[in-house]
Design a protein around this nucleic acid. Sequence first.
DNA 1: TATTGTTATACTCTATAACTATA
DNA 2: TATAGTTATAGAGTATAACAATA
Lengths: 136, 136
Amino acid sequence: MSRPRRLGYLLKHANLRLTDLTGPALAPYGLDGREFAVLAVIGEPGPLSQLDVGQRLGVDRSTMVGLVDGLERKRLVARRPHPDDRRKNVVELTEHGRETLEKATRAVDEAEAAFLSGLEEGDARLFRVLLERLLG
Amino acid sequence: MSRPRRLGYLLKHANLRLTDLTGPALAPYGLDGREFAVLAVIGEPGPLSQLDVGQRLGVDRSTMVGLVDGLERKRLVARRPHPDDRRKNVVELTEHGRETLEKATRAVDEAEAAFLSGLEEGDARLFRVLLERLLG
DNA sequence: TATTGTTATACTCTATAACTATA
DNA sequence: TATAGTTATAGAGTATAACAATA
C-alpha cells in the first residue's frame, strides 16, 4: 500500500511517530510532551512570565493558565508575583521540577534518537539543521 | 527571544507554517488540507473503499464518513457500492473532482515550494528525502 | 487605555462504542 | 463471526471574549 508523499502528510505523520515515542518516554515522570515543553522553557535562564513562556511556544495565554496549573499541582513549578509588575506571574522550577526536567530531558533525548535511528548519524544531524533553518 | 530546538517543537511548528501556506492556497477551491489529502488518495488508480483511503492516511473509518460526506456534497467525489462486496463503498472522483484535484495540486505544489524557499534547492530536495526515509 | 492572568465558552479534530448490512 | 459503513457521543486541544487587577 503506497504512502502519500505530500509534505503535509509526511510532516504530520513524522510528528505522530515522534509523539508515540516521547509519550511513553515521559510517562514515568508524569509528563506529556506539551508539559515537558513548558517545563523546558521555564527552566531557561531569566525570570519568565506565563505570557513569555507561551509566546516562545506559540501557546495562547489562556491556554497557559491550565498548563501551569497542572505543573503547579505536581509541584514542578511555582508562581510568584513579578516584583516590578504585579500583573505578571513569574513562573519558576521548584527543586523537584529541576530534577524532573533533567531526567525527562534525557528520556526525550533518547526518544528523539530512536525517532532518527532510521537515518545515519550525519543525516540525522542534517535533518535537524534543515528543520531549524526552515523555521529560522 | 530564543526558539526551542527540540524536535517536537520544530516538527509541530513546521507543520503549522505549512498549514498556514496550504490553507489560503486551497481556499479558492473550497478545500482544506485534509480534504485535499483525501481527494488526492481517491485520485490514485484502482478502486478504493472508504476504509482503504482512511488506512493510507491514518484516518479512522468513522472519521472518513464525514470527510467523504463533505466531498460528496461538493460533487467532487461519488460513492457507489462495490460490485463484489456490497459492504464496501467504492469512492471515486467526479469529473469536477478530477479538475479540482488538478488545480489544487498545482496550488499545493506552490505552497510547498514557498514553505521550502528558505532552503537551497538541493537542501529542499534532501529535506523531503530524509523525511520520507524517516517514515519509510 | 493597555496588558496579564483568569474564567467561561465554543469550536475543531479525532477516536470509541454500538448499530446495520453484508460476508 | 468478522468486516464496512454509519451514528452518537465524548475527549483532547485550542482559541475567543469578557472580566479583574494592575500599569
